[in-house]
Amino acid sequence: MTVLSPRARRLVAAGAFLPLVLAGCSAGSTAPGRSADAVTVTDQWVKAADSGMSAGFGELRNTGGTPVTVVSATSPAAGRLELHEVVPDADGAMVMRPKDGGFAIPAGGALTLRPGGDHLMFMELGTPLRTGSTTEVVLTFADGSSTTFSAQVRDFAGAQEEYAPGHGA
């Protein structure tokens, strides 16, 4: 029986693994990229709230060569999360409503989630969102891939929009 030193065992293991790594990196690969691999999330934060609802914001940047669409989101902080937009109603008042079709992020572009605009609506909060804490958010894309990020909870007094009729909590 041959006994290998720890260094020799590492080299053998690396030699067995290297072809697998190189196969995944070949220039001729035709496998499509996952949306989650092309999207980065920066400046992410969630509005502090004791109960009920809150909202999440940040910048979603698509570094890929094709458009991607966020179709849903989840967080352990909320019973449900909705993708929302703020639009004028028939009387010109700004109202929140679910974003039909999700959040589209153009190839090589970005989408800013901001107060008074597109945002993540945290509904049915399970526990208070306290300033300085963080919460995880999972974004799911149209291709089924997903990405997880942490968002800091911050105080914010603005953006007290109303719901569009029929879309309240």
Rank of each mutant, 00 (worst) to 15 (best):
G15W: 01
R61N: 10
H167M: 09
F103C: 11
R10V: 03
P165S: 05
T2Q: 15
G117R: 12
A14G: 10
V153W: 05
T134Q: 14
D118R: 12
A13G: 10
G28S: 05
L60Q: 04
G101K: 01
G92C: 04
M121V: 03
S54V: 04
R9L: 08
V70P: 04
R114W: 08
S51R: 15
Q160L: 11
V95H: 13
F103N: 03
F141N: 00
D118C: 05
D155M: 08
T63C: 06
F141T: 01
A38Q: 12
V137D: 03
A36H: 08
A36D: 05
T140L: 13
T131R: 14
Q160P: 07
V153C: 06
V87H: 03
H84M: 14
G64N: 05
P19F: 01
M94E: 11
S5L: 06
K99L: 15
A31S: 12
L18E: 01
L20V: 09
I105G: 01
Y163C: 02
L113T: 02
V87L: 08
R97W: 05
C25R: 11
H167L: 08
P106V: 11
E85R: 15
S26D: 12
L81Q: 12
T74F: 01
A93C: 07
M121D: 09
V138G: 09
G65L: 10
A159V: 10
A90H: 11
D143R: 02
G65N: 10
F149Y: 12
A38Y: 00
A38K: 06
E82F: 03
N62T: 06
Y163V: 02
V39T: 01
S146I: 04
H119V: 00
A27S: 10
F122C: 09
T134L: 06
T112A: 15
T135G: 11
L113H: 02
R80L: 11
A36G: 06
A110K: 07
L4H: 13
T66C: 08
G79M: 07
A169G: 08
T140I: 07
A14D: 06
M96F: 10
A31T: 13
M123R: 13
A164M: 01
W45Y: 02
G92Y: 06
P6S: 00
V70E: 00
V86H: 09
M1C: 09
S54M: 09
P19E: 07
G158P: 04
T2Y: 15
A142M: 12
L113Y: 07
A16C: 08
D50R: 12
P67Y: 00
A13N: 07
E59R: 15
T69P: 05
E161N: 11
P67V: 00
T112C: 07
P67N: 04
Y163P: 00
S29M: 11
A169F: 14
I105K: 04
G102W: 04
M94C: 03
A142C: 12
G109N: 08
D143E: 09
A107M: 10
G116N: 10
P76D: 12
R97I: 00
T134G: 09
G65S: 14
R7A: 07
R34W: 11
N62R: 11
A48Y: 00
A157S: 14
A107Q: 09
R130P: 01
H84E: 14
E85D: 14
